[in-house]
Computed example of a mutant assay.
Amino acid sequence: MRRWILPAALALAAALPAVTAVPAAARTAAPDPAQAVKAQLRPERGVRVDEVSRAVTAKASTRTRYHSGIQLGPTGPVASWADVEDASDDRSSGGQGSKPGQRAAVGTSVYTTGEAVAELLPKDKLWVRTEQGDRYPNLALAVASKQTINVFDPAVLRAALKGKRAGAVSGGHLYRGTITYAKLYEAAKGYYGKLFSGAPRGAYAKTTISWRLWTDSRGLPLRLATTERAVSGAYRTIDTRYSGWGEHLIITAPARAEVVEWEDRRRPGPDAPESDISLSAAHSEPYAS
């Protein structure tokens, strides 16, 4: 299991260089991000993700940090790992956050370890496994990020970038725009149709996501910043940075001897709700209520 956990120093190296404008004379035609990402969809290749999201309602404000690795395949993310930490600010009741943990998505299973599940583990076990089935459009992506715009689908990128001009910045290009869930559904009905159990309707269909996308000199995403507002006035911002495109990455499940099934976990007191280690705040959940 250790071979897929990236060294902390390597993960921290994902910080972006300073973004500055460049003279018009130095500008060149921008590479197509959709084609650039499509070329990365190969077996045993991956990308690193560093992300901070903030969800704000009338009663609470919570930040979530992800340090993740995503294994790619011809159809997109196929497995992932993530260090996840939630932190509530003073607007939240008690100002408390959830305990940090590490997750891995392999197949249709999520494996969780760390403080978040420490009280549930027998002495000889390190991981709790939960079976997710086909609950999420892409389980590997749901474990690694909260972003609602799926940059790993070239069709989604083409829909978002349609009619948008690239602005030249140091080392690459910057795009900006808005897109609705209805447009995202048109671009990737399989993915967003699973998310909404069909075509998005009502407020969800009209919900607008404002976005900015930075790409490198090859057209690959370096950073995606999105803002999504609900009709209630609640909003969510997500700032995701990508690095290490194309690095060799294989993510495997923990050894069976280290894993306890959710149904067989230790019960020191009242049963902990399964939502404690589920993906209830996963990237794929819309924010229009």
Results as ranks from 00 to 15, higher is better:
residue 77 P to A: 15
residue 168 A to F: 02
residue 132 Q to Y: 01
residue 96 Q to I: 14
residue 129 R to D: 00
residue 28 T to I: 12
residue 27 R to Q: 13
residue 184 L to Q: 05
residue 261 E to W: 01
residue 137 P to A: 04
residue 172 G to I: 07
residue 221 P to T: 13
residue 281 A to Y: 14
residue 144 A to V: 12
residue 251 I to N: 03
residue 51 E to P: 08
residue 84 V to F: 12
residue 229 R to I: 01
residue 280 S to T: 12
residue 4 W to E: 10
residue 236 R to Y: 06
residue 113 T to H: 03
residue 284 S to N: 14
residue 48 R to G: 08
residue 233 G to T: 00
residue 204 Y to M: 07
residue 160 A to W: 04
residue 247 E to T: 07
residue 241 R to L: 01
residue 237 T to S: 00
residue 123 K to C: 03
residue 156 V to W: 09
residue 24 A to E: 13
residue 29 A to L: 05
residue 90 D to E: 12
residue 226 T to P: 02
residue 163 G to R: 00
residue 211 W to P: 01
residue 265 R to H: 02
residue 114 G to F: 06
residue 232 S to D: 10
residue 57 T to F: 04
residue 105 A to F: 04
residue 52 V to K: 15
residue 261 E to A: 08
residue 158 R to Y: 05
residue 7 P to Y: 02
residue 204 Y to W: 10
residue 8 A to P: 01
residue 201 R to S: 15
residue 91 R to K: 13
residue 6 L to I: 14
residue 234 A to V: 07
residue 18 A to Y: 06
residue 218 R to F: 11
residue 190 G to W: 08
residue 223 R to K: 11
residue 202 G to N: 12
residue 268 P to E: 04
residue 212 R to S: 11
residue 26 A to S: 09
residue 99 K to N: 11
residue 208 T to A: 04
residue 188 A to W: 03
residue 65 R to C: 02
residue 95 G to H: 11
residue 51 E to L: 11
residue 258 E to A: 13
residue 30 A to G: 02
residue 126 L to I: 06
residue 61 S to E: 08
residue 287 Y to D: 08
residue 96 Q to G: 04
residue 218 R to N: 14
residue 45 R to N: 01
residue 205 A to V: 10
residue 43 P to W: 15
residue 56 V to T: 10
residue 279 L to G: 07
residue 201 R to W: 09
residue 169 V to Q: 06
residue 120 L to S: 09
residue 97 G to A: 09
residue 193 G to S: 07
residue 183 K to S: 12
residue 274 E to N: 00
residue 42 R to A: 11
residue 244 G to W: 04
residue 70 I to A: 12
residue 242 Y to H: 11
residue 32 D to E: 09
residue 18 A to T: 08
residue 241 R to Q: 07
residue 120 L to H: 06
residue 268 P to C: 03
residue 177 G to S: 04
residue 208 T to Q: 05
residue 152 F to Q: 14
residue 19 V to L: 09
residue 33 P to N: 04
residue 281 A to L: 12
